[in-house]
Design a binder for these strands. Structure first.
Lengths: 345, 345
DNA sequence: TTGTAAGCGTTATCAA
DNA sequence: TTGATAACGCTTACAA
């Protein structure tokens, strides 16, 4: 069965499609009688406007492409909820594509979404991307792009982030105040903005407390549970055991923690642990994990709002070039070394 | 800047748009010379086909609407990965809508996706839906709908499920074999197919072992962490403490387990616990949680394949009316009561 | 082998 | 207040 169109309504009422269109759009220049009849008939035939054809004419699709590395870990899923809340309320559809941390996939996602005529992009970049040329080209063509979380500084586009460097500082500073002196840092992929910034914050904190950084304490890990578990094996093999651990993400922290505990390392007494980006798992694991909490929903909502503004204004909203959202450090058992030591005595 | 269209290519080459169209579609009836020129020009101008306009003509959009209750818990996110893997490979776009467990939202999602001319639906229904009339109407109109996980038996549509009743039986049976006799069951919302079936499986297992079911041991909980935590308080208040717990989902099991442990209940020694639907948290929580593992990715992929078949055949694939995917019981510490008792002696 | 023209659903423009 | 027509990007009979 073919879908009902304004033609069907027009035919039934013996009027023209333009009148039907006007009546449905609630225009002033249409007879109240006619409008009523049209609305009634539309209802009766279960008419639903075809948003696709609308897009053809206006050259906009009322859809937004979202490109993220993955959404199985709840972080990006929560961000998408923030994005959705804003865009759906404005009658936009969200098209979600996963890059699976692959640049190639990211590029093909962009092409695909362009073919679908999305009105703009919300992007958190993958980690194996060599440069930002693709996004630069997009922006130069006039396509609105807003980055969040994992950004592309070389591209001139708005970004919504937290102050990763500052919060990595806070996390490390907290460990030092808990008495840690040999703090290992599990890093993420090198070309990810968050990797670089969080490492910088870690180094800042060491410097602020006059602790010398040691190359051997900076352990390349990754972003996921397995990466943390693998890194833990390296830690166990170290001649001089560290007394603190700051991981780039919660999964990495948890993966490391589980492995260390299985090998009999007591947490936080022997090694205090701090993660980053507050996952639901942080409150599940034992001991509960200290972590930097990012307001994920708000990050998504903010990015979506900037994109909407760009769409409405027709130009990049300059004052939103860099939006820094606040974060917080949730202190839990995994890092409370001083308290644990006291209660253990 | 306007996007490049076949008109632009045609104008530059002084040929007609139909020739360009044919050349791009790689038709036989076009001069190799012309084809080469067209392809070259398309490349040069960065031409990208407009999938939207294509849909207008053919009355199909090459997009599929997916409606799920939520995707912050990884279960549905994993299913979507399965869906994506099949559909993206077939050049379909997936439009994801969350119902947030609200029937109203579900209905508005359907309307919205219909307006976007999706070619079909993949649905896991929300829990507060009164009936399936909406989906029935859709199917009668000839719109392909495939249900997965949470299905709508009243609607005549394919469904992809696991044998919830059987695996609830296995889970409960396992607890009984571990020596449990007073097993509490934390249930989900009443009108959800999985709630009903898992409760039935629980009762089956009790009956099979000649254990009398007790109304007071069937505790209405919900689907999430908080629901499990709240249910745990009820358990703690029971006069006769149960020795086993089977929860409708992992989050409920984990919520209950955390609360029980905080109140000093030893798991599995005092209460053995089994969850359902294997979440990543199962392997994180302590003690690690025994749970029924559903092949989430495969469920999504299977549902997507059935939908594709329906789309290609033009008729509902009858032999896929009910596809039962296999599952398994992952036995971990939380339920190994016998072993724990031995090692504790 | 190529071009012309109609059509998909809708709206904007102009004329009636 | 309403209707006819063109246009959005693309494909496809049919004609040349």
């Amino acid at each position: 069965m073919k879908p009902v169109t304004i033609k069907d309504i027009a035919k039934r009422l013996n009027i023209s499609t333009s009148t039907v269109s006007r009546a449905l759009a609630d225009r002033w220049d249409v007879n109240p009688e006619t409008r009523r009849a049209v609305l009634e008939m539309a209802e009766q035939l279960h008419y639903k406007p075809n948003l696709i054809s609308l897009g053809l004419r206006s050259n906009q699709s009322f859809s937004i492409g979202v490109i993220i590395p993955e959404f199985v870990n709840s972080f990006f899923a929560e961000v998408i909820n923030g994005i959705n809340s804003v865009l759906v309320a404005n009658n936009y559809q969200v098209l979600i594509c996963q890059s699976n941390e692959s640049w190639e996939t990211e590029k093909s996602n962009i092409r695909f979404l362009e073919s679908r005529c999305v009105d703009g992009f919300l992007v958190s970049v993958s980690d194996d991307r060599a440069n930002c040329d693709y996004f630069r080209a997009l922006i130069e063509k006039g396509v609105p792009v807003v980055f969040f979380n994992r950004v592309c500084d070389e591209a001139d586009a708005p970004e919504v982030i937290i102050d990763d460097r500052r919060w990595a500082f806070e996390a490390t500073d907290h460990l030092i105040r808990e008495g840690c002196r040999r703090i290992v840092h599990l890093t993420g992929p090198d070309n990810l903005s968050v990797s670089i910034l969080r490492k910088a914050g870690y180094l800042d904190a060491l410097a602020a407390h006059g602790i010398e950084a040691e190359e051997s304490l900076i352990v390349p890990a990754g972003l996921f549970l397995e990466d943390g578990a693998a890194a833990a094996m390296k830690i166990l093999a170290m001649e001089e055991r560290p007394d603190g651990l700051f991981a780039i993400t919660d999964p990495v922290a948890i993966g490391a923690m589980k492995t260390l505990r299985k090998r009999g390392v007591r947490i936080p007494e022997e090694i205090a642990v701090v993660g980053f980006s507050e996952s639901p798992m942080a409150a599940i694991v034992e001991p509960e994990l200290t972590s930097v909490e990012q307001p994920t929903f708000e990050i998504g909502a903010a990015a979506a709002r900037i994109l909407l503004e760009w769409l409405h204004e027709g130009a990049m909203p300059r004052r939103s070039r860099k939006v820094v959202i606040d974060a917080s450090l949730n202190i839990r058992e995994s890092s409370l070394r001083a308290a644990a030591a006291r209660s253990g005595e």
